[in-house]
Design a protein around this nucleic acid. Structure first.
Length: 260
DNA sequence: CCGGATGTTCACCT
DNA sequence: GAGGTGAACATCCG
């Protein structure tokens, strides 16, 4: 599933191959994927003839700047970006391996004959024009200690729920949240606002380091905890049997010994 | 064959 | 307003 690390790979692909190219046509065979009242005709009107100027990202939202509107792409659980047959991520967890054209939900055709497409089997992704970027919190890859402290301050929600709340911190998904909390030795059901300065600092360090490390390994599914998130799984650090519960609406696994 | 899992967003409820 | 719950999506797995 695309979390922040996968979307960053998509951004890099778009920056390398889409920026500088001009849109000749818009493919929108699936109106469901268009959000914010956007229609296939309106999308075509707004984007045809436009040049892609930059590829940005905030959390899991990919933003393509043009000399017209900003094109916002969300990938849900199973969305992938492909440009001229190249994929930002080759293999996606929980997504079918076999590819079908019918999963191409949206695309830009460039005037040189190439294309950029959003492929999304489960249709959990979305396409919008000029998405409201201000609704997202600071990006998890670049968040400062001060920003992280502000994101958690005063909240009585479970720590993990707050980390997953894109309005307060943009980019962390379920698997990354479990991995980071495991690394930081913090229990997912701690009230978010209850962390002391030492714990906040530790969480920030593991968030930043963990994202970089998993990015280098290849993505969100390469965490150390991942293989043990199953019944009977044991903590790879101290061997204790992991416990699980629904926290923040998501299946959550953690170590009862070293996460407090 | 069917229920549950899978991640995210959004509408709705307390 | 904050936080929790369930629906929606399509596919896979046990």
């Amino acid at each position: 599933m695309p979390e922040i690390l996968e979307v960053e790979r998509y951004r890099q692909l778009a920056a390398e191959r889409a920026v500088g190219r001009r849109v000749e046509a818009v493919e929108a065979p699936d109106p469901w994927i268009l959000k914010g009242g956007l229609t296939p005709a309106a999308a075509a009107d707004a984007l045809t003839g436009r040049e892609v100027l930059d590829a940005r990202r905030r959390g899991k939202l990919l933003l393509l700047d043009t000399d017209g509107p900003v094109l916002g792409l969300r990938f849900g659980m199973t969305g992938r970006l492909h440009v001229d047959g190249r994929y930002g991520v080759e293999r996606l967890e929980y997504s079918p391996v076999v590819e079908h054209e019918r999963w191409d939900r949206f695309g830009l055709v460039f005037d040189d004959g190439g294309y950029l497409r959003l492929q999304d089997p489960r249709r959990l992704g979305g396409v919008a024009l000029d998405p409201d970027e201000a609704r997202l919190g600071p990006d998890a890859l670049t968040v400062t200690p001060r920003q992280l402290a502000a994101a958690l301050a005063g909240s009585r929600a479970p720590l993990k729920a707050r980390l997953l709340d894109q309005a307060h911190l943009a980019g962390v998904g379920n698997l990354l949240a479990d991995e980071i909390l495991w690394r930081a030795g913090l229990a997912p059901n701690r009230p978010a606002g209850s962390l002391d300065p030492v714990e906040l600092r530790r969480l920030h360090r593991h968030l930043r380091r963990g994202l970089v490390e998993l990015g280098e390994r290849g993505g969100s599914h390469t965490g150390d905890l991942g293989p043990h998130r199953r019944p009977g799984g044991r903590c790879p650090r101290d061997g204790a049997e992991l416990v699980h519960a629904v926290v923040g609406g998501r299946t959550t696994w953690w170590c009862p010994i070293h996460q407090h």
